[in-house]
């Protein structure tokens, strides 16, 4: 006898579950006004503003060796975009998922915790792809000519995302949702202004040698090295790896899903 509700339980294949989770989270992130502002609008404004403003001020930093400002700022803004998605957006989204019982609800579904984490990471990568196309496209319109630095850029994206995602989950796991919202935005603004992400560490004078060790500075330098020199910034990637390990260890000790 089979009826409409005759039990036929079972989880979908794990990769399908992870894909479903990732596409769901990416859609929600791109649909949310504030998140979209953070992911795309602010980086594009920063890029256009820095390039146009720098041109009017007749800036020609020595690191550029006569190349246009857009070659310096586009990699920096790409680094900023990675930071905003994997740190700020992830922390805020996770904070409110805890608040709204989403994680508790998913905890009763066949999706395991590791699958949920994988889905989140994949969603971040999807959003970062969108950001790369938009920011890269605007950069091209402004005359950006990147050096072929795919390997260095890819490593920077992977390690930068890992480091900032671990730190984002650390914030979301220790604070209430509203406090997470405030802290994640504040840290983002501080790093944007003083974290050597859009501007190179050398622009900060003596503070620059400290900023290089921040995850923001390391990510910014790594992306700049990739697209300005076509090289791999091993030192900065090492710094990002260090932050990823430290962040993951702290998150693993403190994070509770609910």
């Amino acid at each position: 006898m089979t009826g409409t509700f005759t039990p036929m339980p079972g989880g979908a294949a794990l990769h399908r579950q992870v894909l479903a989770q990732a596409s769901m989270e990416a859609r929600l992130m791109l649909r949310n006004g504030e998140q979209l502002l953070l992911a795309v609008v602010i980086p594009v404004i920063v890029l256009v503003g820095a390039v146009k403003g720098g041109q009017h001020l007749d800036l020609s930093p020595s690191v550029l060796d006569g190349r246009p400002l857009v070659d310096l700022f586009t990699p920096g803004v790409l680094a900023l975009a990675i930071m905003s998605t994997s740190f700020t957006s992830l922390a805020i989204a996770t904070g409110f998922e805890r608040r709204y019982g989403v994680i508790k609800r998913l905890g009763a579904s066949p999706l395991p915790r590791l699958g949920l984490l994988a889905g989140k990471v994949l969603a971040l990568v999807l959003v970062e792809l969108v950001q790369l196309f938009v920011i890269g496209g605007v950069g091209q319109l402004l005359g950006w000519t990147p050096e072929p630095g795919a390997v260095g850029f890819l490593l920077a994206v992977v390690l930068g995302t890992a480091a900032f995602a671990a730190l984002g989950l650390l914030v979301a796991g220790t604070l209430r949702a509203e406090a997470t919202l405030a802290a994640a935005n504040l840290i983002y603004l501080l790093l944007l202004a003083g974290g050597a992400v859009v501007l190179p560490a050398s622009a900060y004078g003596g503070f620059g040698s400290f900023a290089e060790w921040l995850p923001s500075g390391a990510l910014g330098e790594a992306v700049r090295t990739a697209f300005l020199d076509g090289a791999v910034a091993w030192r900065d990637l090492g710094v990002l790896l260090g932050w990823a390990v430290l962040g993951s260890a702290l998150t693993a000790r403190t994070f509770t899903w609910e």
Binding site: P9, G11, A12, A20, Q21, L28, R31, Y100, A108, S109
Partner: peptide, 28 residues
Amino acid sequence: GVMLQGQGAWSGVRAMEMLRHIARLHAH
């Protein structure tokens, strides 16, 4: 199958979108 007391969904998710999502996590 679990029905919690209140909440358990993203605030911006559409009702059917949420249901379809949970459905996709299952085999049948």
